[in-house]
């Protein structure tokens, strides 16, 4: 539900009478106090820092200076390009795989469904650092993946220390961890489709492939869209995987905006500049998720 729809639904509840008790304020107070201190105040403060130069605990107002600096920062643009590439390549592959496997797992002809589903779900339970560590060994020069490629006579690949392959390594790891997560959600959506629809289609002579294309896919399309929005946001905020697997290297080839932000803020302590990075990323995330939802709405009305 979009922001506007949410706001509208707020006003369209005729059954609620205005209350004269202080009860709602009592219920809201704990959340609102924490929300103000640990969310609203930091967001506003962060914006002020991004307009300033941080000097030994004091803010010196510099206007848009940091943002101008950011526009000319090659490493920042590299980091954006990197997540852009990961976004365009990894998210469609992952969601495609998720759609295929969810459909297969939903098939009534599949035996041992419960165990298979459990297997696909397991990666979700592995901590992100733990699985990144596992992949840093699997993708090492002498790691299992290279041994596996060797079986087919393929050359060893320097996954983690080459500018060409570092992004691929991160995409492999991400795809492993998140595909099952998306499978579970899609599967849930598919299982909630009433079987009568399929029965009616069978009676009309539609084969399973046709049923999948004309019933299953359109009905789970909104979920797929939502998954793509969340995956986009997640990719733009990518941190743990590059931090563990490649540390952004070699030569920024797997640097991400948030990893860059972390380094600028907490290794170089340029708070003003790091805050500008944070806001740039925030704006990008907002624009992209609104765009994705818009495009889908236009498509839905066609």
């Amino acid at each position: 539900m979009g922001v506007r729809a949410q706001a509208q639904s707020l006003n369209s509840r005729p059954r609620l009478r205005p209350t004269r008790t202080a009860a709602p304020y009592g219920f809201l107070a704990p959340f609102i106090v924490m929300f103000g201190i640990f969310l609203v105040y930091p967001i506003v403060y962060s914006f002020l820092i991004s307009l300033s130069h941080w000097q030994s605990g004091h803010l010196v107002f510099r206007g848009l200076f940091q943002y101008r600096l950011l526009l000319e920062d090659g490493e920042f643009w590299d980091s954006l390009l990197n997540v852009g590439i990961i976004l365009v390549v990894q998210v469609p592959i992952m969601l495609g795989l998720a759609a295929v496997f969810a459909s297969l797992l939903n098939s009534r002809r599949l035996r041992g469904r419960a165990i298979f589903q459990l297997g696909f779900f397991l990666p979700v339970l592995i901590d992100m650092v733990a699985y990144s560590l596992v992949f840093s060994f699997l993708l090492a020069p002498n790691g299992l993946l290279n041994h596996f490629l060797g079986i087919f006579g393929l050359p060893h690949i320097n996954w983690l220390n080459s500018a060409t392959w570092s992004k691929v390594a991160i995409m492999l790891a991400m795809t492993w961890h998140w595909t099952g997560y998306n499978v579970i959600i899609l599967l849930g959506a598919m299982q909630s489709i009433p079987t009568e629809i399929y029965e009616a289609a069978s009676v009309d002579g539609a084969n399973p492939v046709r049923q999948w294309a004309s019933i299953t896919l359109p009905l789970v399309a909104p979920i797929l869209l939502f998954e793509s929005v969340l995956s986009t946001i997640g990719t733009l905020q990518l941190f743990t995987e590059p931090y563990i697997l490649t540390a952004g290297g070699p030569e920024h080839s797997s640097m991400t905006p948030v990893l860059y932000l972390y380094q600028v803020a907490f290794q170089q302590f340029h708070f003003g500049y790091a805050s500008a990075i944070a806001f740039a990323v925030a704006i990008l995330i907002a624009v992209l998720s609104i765009l994705q939802l818009r495009v889908s709405r236009v498509r839905a009305t066609l």
Partner: peptide, 23 residues
């Protein structure tokens, strides 16, 4: 209040990293 809370949903966590650290 609700619009304020809605707005906060759009803002990613990294934005608050530095102010929270100072706080």
């Amino acid at each position: 209040l609700f619009v304020l809370v809605l707005g906060a949903l759009m803002i990613p966590a990294q934005v608050t990293l530095i102010p929270l650290f100072i706080l």
